[in-house]
Design a binder for these strands. Sequence first.
DNA 1: TCAGAAACGGAATCTAGTGTCATTTTCGGT
DNA 2: ACCGAAAATGACACTAGATTCCGTTTCTGA
Lengths: 213, 213
Amino acid sequence: MTAISAADGAGLTRAERRKAETRREIIDAAFACFAEQGYHATGIADIAARLGMGHGTFYRYFENKRDIVEHVITDLIDKVVGALAAENAPGAVHTLEGYRAQTERIGTALARIFSEDPRMARMLLLEAPGIDQGMGERILGFFELATSLTASYLAHGVELGYLPADLDVDNTARAINGMILGSVLASLQQPELDQRALSAAIRRVMYDGIAAR
Amino acid sequence: MTAISAADGAGLTRAERRKAETRREIIDAAFACFAEQGYHATGIADIAARLGMGHGTFYRYFENKRDIVEHVITDLIDKVVGALAAENAPGAVHTLEGYRAQTERIGTALARIFSEDPRMARMLLLEAPGIDQGMGERILGFFELATSLTASYLAHGVELGYLPADLDVDNTARAINGMILGSVLASLQQPELDQRALSAAIRRVMYDGIAAR
DNA sequence: TCAGAAACGGAATCTAGTGTCATTTTCGGT
DNA sequence: ACCGAAAATGACACTAGATTCCGTTTCTGA
């Protein structure tokens, strides 16, 4: 019990730190494989090969294939949630103008995170739901979470009066999140698409509707 | 050459008609299996068993697993496209009021078709994209198609002046279709959800925006 | 430098499905 | 009722991967 808990980083042995690092590398490699070839089409051997390790080694770090994909997805969801949380909270704004600016920030943040690495959207939207029942539920649950977050933004606006009192908060939240989802999908099929314009179109619909004034 | 081309139905032998019927049954059974257990989790044997036939028989009607799922998806897409086509064409309307009514009809038709059989949405949105690269493209292509259809509706409105001249037709179409997609997803996780209210919320966003007047 | 422990690697094992085929059953016509 | 053709069947051969195992290598600490 010599080197244990040297309090560097977080009280980890050198070995433990290296192990964590390898796990990280495996998660990244697995993400790359899954996103590029698809979950079912990639074997454990592919993941190991990408790191130049024997595939037996893989099992020293993760239980099985299902285990690794679980970690990959958790990782991605955390990233998205983190990006959203980084923008200010529902209650941080008090006027329609402020709210509009906030939605713009959020939209920009999402657009950046997704267009910066298209594999992320591919994995989350195209691959993950079809992995198995459980993963499908998990992705749906994530949407659900996003909906309630958006709903709380809207509810705040209704309370302060800069959004109409009779707004159907939950369903409107679903509609808004749908637009965002649609833009992510659009960027999947046309990566060169102008995200800024798309995001602007969404805000215009949100605030003005489409009718001619 | 006795019974050939008796011109009943469409010039088919009795045997041919029965064969077509069996194909239909297999497609339906396959759809049920794929939607309920997932594509990768269902074997040909499952599909055959559901019809009480030997799995060798399956191969007398379809090439292989990929072949059958292709047919299943084609079938579903045709159904959706059919439901959309049944509503009147982009050019059938000449006022904002008419357009609003048309969107309401379309929304209702979609809501009905999807809530009438939740497996359809499950299959199209959760299962299909992850089957393989090609199927993923196909689903994305379907969204693309939907986008251009919506865009043509919008373009028509801009031309006649009941929609604003500077409307970003393509991106707005993406936003609108996103809302629809969002509502289908929402109904997947909460089947009891009030589609009518959700659809109304979408139209309200579309026409009025969310700002307090 | 050495002994024991932990990490590796990849051959070997196991399992699950796919797709084939020789055999049996059913069908349609006479 | 009988015959050849067509359809159905399910045992079987094969393959692709996932997971396990154990001999080998690399580390760690003294």
